[in-house]
Amino acid sequence: MSNTLYITGAGVSSASGIPTFRGEDGFWTIGSNNYTPQEMATRAMYQHNPAEFLAWYYKRFVTYRNHGPNGAHFWLADKNLITQNIDGLDGKAGNQNYISIHGRIDEVTLFHEQGPVVERFKAPWHEVDEQNLKASLLDIFKISKHGPELNMSLKPYVLLFDEFYTELYQISEAQERMFEADKMVFMGTSFSVNITQMALEIARQNQIPIEIVDPNPAHVMHSQATYHQMTALEYIEKIA
C-alpha cells in the first residue's frame, strides 16, 4: 500500500483569497510602518513590543480567519498531510490528522519557555475591539506594561522566526511521517523554510521520489523529482 506524504505551503490557500508569503501583497513582503516582516514575526518583538507584534499579527493573519477551504483542501482532507499554513483551512475541510507544523491562527498558548508541550486554547479573536486594537489585544492577551509574563500571558500558537521546532508543533511525528513515506508531494511551497529542507534531505537520503506542484516550481537537487508547473487545483484536476 502506497504512503504518499503531502507537504503544502501558502500556494494551496491562495484560491481561498489568502495571500502567499512572497508575492506583491505577501505576508513576508508587507511589514509595519517601522519594521520588516522578518523583524515583526519574532519572539523578541512579542516580548519587547507586544502591542506592535499583536497588531501586525492580527492585521496580516487573523483577518483571514473566516475564509473557507477551497477544492485543494477538500481533496487533501483524507491525505497524509503536513502543512506550513497556519490558516486552519485543512481542519475546516475535514482533515482530522494533519500536522500544522507552524501553528494555527485559531489557537493560542500560555507564553512559556520553548521546549515543553503546553495546552492550546481557542484564540479569543472575537473579543477584539478593532477601534482600539492595540489596547484591546494587550488586555485580551493579559500583557501588562511590563510585557508578557511567563505562564500568565497568552501567545499566538505560531512558530516565529527566532523560535525552533518543538514537540508542541509535532516535529517528531512530522519527521516520522517523512521517513515512512514512499513518495512526497510538495504543493505550493517555495522550499525556503526549514521543514521543506528537512523533508527534501530525507527524500534524498532514502531515495524517496518527490513531486513539486507550483505555477513557478523551485528546482531542487534531487534525481527523482517530477515538476508540475501548475496550481494545486490544476494538479488535482489532472490526476483525478
Rank of each mutant, 00 (worst) to 15 (best):
M1Y: 07
Y6G: 01
T8C: 03
S14K: 12
S14R: 11
G17V: 03
G17W: 06
E24Y: 11
T36H: 12
P37I: 13
A41T: 12
R43E: 13
M45F: 12
H48F: 15
A51E: 15
E52I: 11
L54Y: 08
A55T: 15
Y57C: 07
R60Y: 08
Y64N: 10
H67V: 06
A72C: 10
F74W: 09
A77L: 05
D87A: 11
G88A: 10
G88L: 05
A93G: 13
N97K: 15
G103S: 09
R104P: 06
D106V: 07
V108S: 03
G115D: 09
V118R: 00
Q131T: 11
S136C: 10
Y165C: 04
Y165G: 01
Y169Q: 03
F179P: 00
E180W: 02
D182C: 00
K183M: 09
K183E: 13
T189M: 02
A199G: 03
L200V: 02
Q205M: 08
N206K: 07
N206D: 02
N216R: 09
H219T: 04
V220F: 03
Q224A: 14
A225H: 10
T226D: 06
T226Q: 11
Y227R: 06
E234D: 14
Y235W: 12
I236E: 01
I239T: 10
